[in-house]
Design a protein around this nucleic acid. Structure first.
Lengths: 242, 242
DNA sequence: CGGAAACTTGAAACCTTTCAAGAGTCGTGG
DNA sequence: CCACGACTCTTGAAAGGTTTCAAGTTTCCG
């Protein structure tokens, strides 16, 4: 019993932004300790979802900005003909919800790719909070800007040949993971080949073949969803874009 | 002499947001008359550029948000290999500069495609102005959201076949023009086939062929850069996405 | 363990690009 | 005002990369 309650206290403590291991990564970067405290009691407690659960659905009213604490998510949208498009892949520490900024309702659906933890900055308190914490506004804008930039990256990437797209995808992932404290050379893809292909505008078979190419060239090793980057230098120089 | 000075006064009056013919379209939408007045004296006077002039260059420090009053502009970026990418095409009444939000320096270059008029909301006054005019903040966020949404649109579009991409480009243009009071069925492309192709991830010859296809099908007529949409219904139903 | 889903691999089909040549458009200067 | 040259656009044919189709293998999960 005491064990359980200790555990509960720990969990509660973890909920606050101040103690969050991701505090440098999601919103609070660039905010003072005082700022963070003020945000902490407004950010909702951490919530948990499971694989396939929706964080929100296309058309939903904007509820707030969400920060992924653990797990990954994908963003989906579709056109009239029923074609589905995977428009985003979110990692722990990344923010989502900006797709509702234009008209207050989401243009994407967000789906958990595995068990997922997140917390939320409620929309109805954003205004007040921004007034109280001036730096928060700048941080939010910066995040939207990053979202915009990453959208452009994919945009530019999909005008390149298949191998470059897949390599760009791996390098982008590697970069984002390492910035968040994960390994830059060993990671697991939560997306299927089909989903990666959808994201990059390629057939799933082409993704498979590109990965094979890289493996044959000694750039990476692939074990199903597990990727190991064996020669980052060469991968970058052959296929890198920045 | 009196004539000239009258003309000058007119020009000066036109400079303020209050009298701007685009007031419903750029920032002030959703702002009260009072709000607009407060913005008006901060927005710089209208500036003029000519074809090929830069509004800003990739790497430039963020100076502020710009609103195009007359003329069009393109957004360019490039990768390490020197490949250039056209990532945007801006019409009168549209805002640009958001590509500097992430790290305070522009990730695109913005180039005038013809004689261009614009005004500017200076970066160093954005904070103060947002404090004074609470609705402005929401408007700005809404605009960033729209920029994000249109980026996604292109993203999704470039995963479709060539004809659909070109049709989507025309429909998008038609829609944006009509929302700004221009004809939805007769308009001039300021971009070359090469640039359209770059924007859509197609060879310039493919753009030319797609336009030819539409013309042969009676959907549009083309006279060099002049486009006339002859059968909007069919164009939409065959190639539309929303 | 068994079935469904995911992945790999090969070959043919298809769409888009590339290459090439000619026609049209535009701006400038004689 | 016409001519010239540069740039843009069109059009055809061949080349090339990616997709589709198909079949077999592996992985995952109940």
């Amino acid at each position: 019993m005491t064990d359980t309650s200790t555990c509960e206290i720990k969990t509660k403590l973890q909920v606050t932004c101040r103690n969050c291991s991701l505090s440098d990564l999601c919103i609070p970067r660039g905010l003072s300790q005082e700022d963070i405290n003020r945000i902490a009691h407004i950010v909702g407690r951490r919530k948990t979802l499971h694989k396939g659960d929706y964080l929100y659905r296309k058309g939903d009213k904007f509820r707030g900005i969400m920060a992924i604490k653990a797990g990954t998510a994908k963003l989906l949208t579709s056109d009239l003909h029923g074609n589905e498009f995977l428009t985003g892949y979110l990692l722990p520490g990344e923010l989502l919800g900006f797709d509702a900024l234009a008209d207050d309702q989401h243009s994407f659906s967000a789906v958990a790719l595995e068990t997922l933890n997140y917390c939320e900055l409620p929309a109805d308190q954003l205004d007040n909070l921004c007034r109280e914490v001036p730096n928060l506004l700048r941080e939010l804008f910066r995040h939207v800007g990053e979202t915009l930039a990453s959208e452009t990256d994919v945009n530019v990437l999909t005008r390149r040949p298949a191998d470059e797209r897949v390599a760009g995808f791996l390098l982008n992932l590697s970069d984002r993971l390492s910035r968040r404290g994960f390994s830059a050379i060993d990671f697991k893809l939560s997306l299927t080949r089909q989903e990666i292909g959808n994201y990059l505008g390629l057939a799933l078979e082409t993704v498979s073949r590109s990965l094979k190419n890289f493996e044959d060239s000694g750039l990476i090793t692939v074990h199903n969803k597990l990727i190991h980057i064996a020669d980052m230098e060469r991968l970058r120089s052959q296929y890198g874009r920045h």
